[in-house]
């Protein structure tokens, strides 16, 4: 797995304890009792909203959950891998994690440019790449260093898809990740800011086998630092270094 060097392989890991990506509050991670009764808190939906997901009604659920770990603690100690200051908004259709509209990376004097991207996802976009089955409508996007990027992510399939970018600075993006996810067909918009270094960032859908079967792409900042492997239409499989 050269494309995401931070991903390590471990034989046996915690079973479920850190299973939510970055959205469990710290106290819950420590106690494992994520589902405590909390009187007074609103129910997510009421029972009358049975099958609301088919109706796609807007229930205006827009809660932000903040963790409590700061810079430097990510990935170690009791913060776990899951909860370093993550923020997210989620409703019944979509989820946006680690959105950043205002925090300018410390190496950027200012935001260089505001960029709007539209990304479409679905089986239809695999048609141009033989042997794949899911896809994005583009497998590469080029942006300038220190730009602020607003992505409108459109899912045309009837299943979940994600647009997840890795390798961003961890002091701004817990786990170095910015993530958008749609529960089915629909669209969602979110914003993040890239730092000044020229780099190719991995973009993918992390649902099992979606990346391998077509949903792999790269965000190139400036001139970038070289293509990632196995991007449909751009690069072939990774060749390990000779021993």
């Amino acid at each position: 797995m050269n494309d995401s060097p931070e991903r390590k392989f471990s034989a046996i890991g915690p079973r479920g304890l850190f299973s939510s990506i970055g959205v469990i509050a710290l106290s819950q991670l420590v106690s494992g009792h994520a589902l405590a009764n909390e009187p007074g808190e609103e129910q997510l939906f009421r029972a009358e909203a049975y099958d609301a997901s088919e109706q796609r009604t807007d229930l205006a659920i827009d809660k932000t959950m903040e963790g409590s770990c700061g810079e430097g603690k990510c990935g170690e100690g009791k913060c776990g891998e899951g909860s370093c200051g993550s923020n997210m908004r989620m409703d019944e259709l979509a989820m946006v994690m680690n959105e950043n509209k205002d925090n300018i990376p410390k190496d950027c004097p200012q935001i260089s440019e505001d960029i709007k991207l539209t990304v479409k996802a679905g089986r239809e976009y695999s048609l141009g790449h033989n042997g794949t089955i899911f896809g994005f409508d583009a497998n590469e996007w080029r942006v300038s260093p220190c730009s602020r990027i607003t992505v409108t992510f459109i899912n045309e399939d009837q299943v979940r898809h994600q647009w997840m970018i890795h390798g961003l600075p961890k002091y701004l993006y817990p786990q170095g990740m910015y993530h958008m996810e749609l529960n089915g067909e629909g669209q969602v918009t979110g914003t993040f800011i890239v730092p000044s270094n020229e780099k190719n960032y991995l973009v993918h859908c992390d649902i099992a086998q979606h990346m391998e079967k077509g949903m792999k792409a790269q965000l190139v900042v400036g001139k970038g630092d070289g293509n990632l492997p196995s991007i449909p239409g751009i690069s072939g499989a990774y060749i390990p270094p000779a021993e």
Partner: peptide, 24 residues
């Protein structure tokens, strides 16, 4: 059912919001 949980409770699982809707 995922529809009858608080957001905090749902976040304690990895289920989607519509994974299991229990109605009337």
């Amino acid at each position: 059912g995922t529809n009858n949980l608080t957001m905090t409770q749902l976040m304690g699982t990895q289920l989607s919001t519509d994974a299991l809707v229990k109605g009337r």
